[in-house]
Nucleic acid binder design. Structure first.
Length: 710
DNA sequence: ACGGATCATACA
DNA sequence: TTGTATGAT
């Protein structure tokens, strides 16, 4: 599982920053009267007071532990304040925590490459910042030092009794005779201390950090002194640290691999690993894992800090434990609809804020069958191309579920028809969106060029007639749904499944179907909200014009053209772009290259036909997605969920932009038609000069301000 | 048949 | 590529 990578440089400065009981802090910021009190965040209050998912340090002192139930926590600590996770659509809603995590990331990313490792953790590569500081402003020259830096814990620094600990730390940091690596770490201490103070000042959240020469050690260190402290691992203390460290404390060794090391190899501490030759470990655990084990025993870990501030996938899921297992297909459909609503909303947020499009929709489910205890894991996950629009995602997810169900039932050769429903149930459902890529850079500016903003579009699109056109496509509940469910036109093909018919499609009991009405208020992109609020509409033109066009004349679509047609059409559009104001010429362009054709066709194949050698599949995929985007349904916004940050919205958006722009893959541009390339290059020109983020932001806002033309 | 909901990554 | 398994928080 773990893979060893060559150590790129043995004196990197890596930090791991971990928020302290993050969910609790988020809730305490919302309710400041909870600060300082023993507090826990709990979800699903129905059963035994709900499960604790975050516990404040005051509560921990009182003996409250994570994965206690709420009632249990009350027994141990009667004064404990239990705060429930927000619920939306009948499930836990973590958006508040995600957004709070984004606030933190945007601060921590200021001094070096930043990798968002989870909702409340990041890795930082501060090597460059530390080297720069060492060259220009070495710690030795410091006359004052932040209190926060002085509170650092430095592993291996012996604190003799009676000696002033902070004074020792100060001396260690200022030490002139330190080797280069220690000096770099000293700079890291100062940088991280400053970052943590900025986080506290700007978000009111405390965090802990580890500072070391690689990710593994930094991660290890960040957990050693919590909360609100930082720990440093100098090179000289690595051996002693690992020697007595239980293997399961090491990241990646907390599961089966760690257990195997203990049981099969008698390895209890990381130090115990040292006695095994590399070949022995490779022989037992494979070449990659073996090498990795041999390296980590020596404190070697070459894993790079990835520059990634955003998640690579979005998922929405829910479990239905035991008695709450879903027993009817329409119950499954109902919950799938809820999950897909949430997913769709988050995809819209991502598109709005980060200009990214997801390409793959995946459904995962778990099922149990009472007779077979092992049947839990076997429900297959299925995926398909992702089409934007809540109703489409719902439709596709449901089809994926049915496909999985057929396979699952086939696997067990079950043929229950109605009678034997009691042994069956779906115990978990989740939908996720992956393969998220940035929108090709030039497209937006070009689309913007083609149509000026038209605020009037909004009102027309929000008129009731334009809403819920697609909801009728969803099979209605009740008996009709039954038929639909049990003899579906297989929209997704699975090998070896051709022979299945409705006779062998028994499925779950349906007699107790509860009507699940597709709600009229759907959730929409915040881009609508923002524009209504008078905020910038910077990404709107492409989307809105696409939606507008779809609503105007849905049938008008063009399929399969070759590249010459693609190009000539582009030239044509470019020639008369002024006349095209209000229609989405660029979108037509992209649609014409949608290899899957119109989404109104129920058939979407799993395999993309890449017969067209002119364009790379990557570009085709992007065209496809852009075409699909035009089908986004526009509807009213739910008041419960806004995906914008709570503060400094505009500023953060701009920050997100400068980050994204840096990430544009130049090769993408090369794949565009020459004429478009020119436009993009002209557009990208100015931002090459400044290396300063503030300056860059202003340039970007110049180019993207809705009031100016590019 | 509860540690729930999300994420990431390696491997076949 | 898709689906599975593992691991972490």
């Amino acid at each position: 599982m773990p893979v060893s990578k060559p150590e790129s440089c043995d004196s990197r400065v890596i930090a791991h920053v971990d928020m302290d009981c993050f969910y609790v802090q988020v809730e305490q910021r919302k309710q400041p009267q909870l600060r300082g009190l023993p507090t826990a965040v709990v979800q699903y209050n129905e059963w035994k007071g709900g499960a604790l998912i975050a516990v404040s340090y005051e509560a921990r002192s009182a003996g409250v532990k994570r994965s206690m139930r709420g009632e249990e926590a009350k027994e141990v600590c009667p004064q404990i304040q239990l705060v429930q996770v927000p619920v939306a659509r009948g499930k836990a809603d973590l958006n508040g925590y995600r957004n709070a995590g984004s606030e933190v990331v945007s601060i921590l990313a200021r001094r070096g490459r930043c990798e968002r490792a989870s909702i409340d953790e990041v890795y930082l590569d501060l090597t460059d910042a530390a080297e720069t500081m060492l060259a220009e402003n070495p710690p030795q020259s410091l006359e004052t030092m932040d209190e926060e830096a002085l509170k650092s814990h430095i592993l291996g620094l012996n604190n003799e009794d009676g000696s002033d600990v902070k004074e020792n730390v100060r001396k260690w940091i200022l030490r002139c005779n330190a080797d280069h690596r220690d000096k770099l770490l000293a700079c890291g201490i100062l940088i991280v201390a400053e970052l943590r103070m900025q986080v506290l000042k700007e978000t009111e959240f405390t965090c802990s950090a580890g500072i070391a020469h690689n990710k593994m050690l930094a991660k290890l260190a960040s957990g050693m002194n919590k909360p609100a402290q930082q720990t440093v691992v100098p090179f000289s203390s690595v051996e002693g640290l690992l020697d007595t460290l239980p293997v399961r404390k090491m990241k990646q060794l907390g599961g089966k691999l760690g257990t195997s090391l203990q049981i099969d190899m008698g390895v209890n501490t990381v130090g115990d690993l040292l006695q095994f030759p590399e070949e022995k470990l490779q022989e037992r655990y494979g070449i990659n894992t073996g090498t990795w084990l041999w390296n980590i025993a020596r404190g070697i870990s070459g894993e790079a800090v990835k520059g990634r501030l955003l998640p690579k996938s979005h998922g929405s899921g829910k479990t239905f434990p035991g008695p709450r297992a879903l027993k009817t297909v329409s119950a499954v459909q109902h919950w799938l609809n809820q999950l897909c609503e949430e997913l769709s909303e988050r995809l819209c947020c991502d598109l709005d804020q980060n200009k990214r499009i997801a390409h793959t929709l995946t459904l995962h489910a778990r099922a149990y069958k009472s007779s077979d205890s092992d049947s839990q894991k076997k429900f297959p996950s299925k995926s398909c191309p992702l089409r934007y629009g809540t109703a489409k995602i719902q439709e596709d997810a449901f089809n994926l579920f049915q496909a999985g169900l057929r396979e699952y039932i086939g696997l067990y050769g079950v043929r229950t028809q109605g009678s034997d429903h009691s042994g069956w149930g779906i115990t978990s459902l989740s939908v996720s969106a992956s393969k998220i890529v940035p929108i090709p850079s030039g497209t937006r500016s070009i689309a913007k060029y083609f149509h000026g903003q038209s605020t009037s579009l909004f009102s027309s699109m929000q008129s009731p007639d334009n809403l819920n056109i697609e909801t009728t496509l969803l099979s209605p509940p009740g008996s009709e749904s039954y038929l639909e469910v049990n003899s579906p036109k297989p929209k997704i093909h699975f090998p070896g499944e051709e022979s299945w018919t409705e006779d062998t499609m028994p499925g779950l009991d349906l007699q107790e179907q509860k009507v699940n009405v597709v709600k009229d208020e759907d959730l929409s992109c915040s881009l609508l909200k923002k524009t209504q609020d008078g905020f910038t509409q910077d990404i709107s033109p492409l989307l809105l014009s696409g939606c507008f066009e779809q609503n105007q004349n849905k049938q008008q679509r063009v399929f399969s053209k070759d590249e010459s047609q693609f190009k000539s059409e582009h030239r044509e559009q470019k020639g008369k772009r002024l006349k095209d104001k209000g229609t989405s010429s660029i979108l037509k362009l992209f649609k014409s290259y949608n290899p899957l054709g119109s989404s109104s066709s129920p058939e979407h194949n799993k395999t993309v036909q890449s017969t067209d050698a002119q364009l790379t599949t990557d570009f085709q995929a992007r065209c496809h997605s852009l075409a699909e985007l035009s089908d986004v349904k526009l509807v009213k916004e739910s008041p419960t969920n806004s995906c914008s940050y709570s503060r400094d919205k505009d500023e953060r958006r701009r920050e997100a932009w400068s980050y994204k722009l840096d990430e544009i893959d130049p090769s993408v541009i090369d794949e565009l038609p020459p004429a478009i390339q020119d436009e993009i290059k002209a557009w990208m020109q100015p931002r090459k000069r400044p290396n300063n983020i503030v300056k860059r932001g202003s340039i970007i806002s110049h180019y993207f301000s809705p009031t100016k033309k590019s």
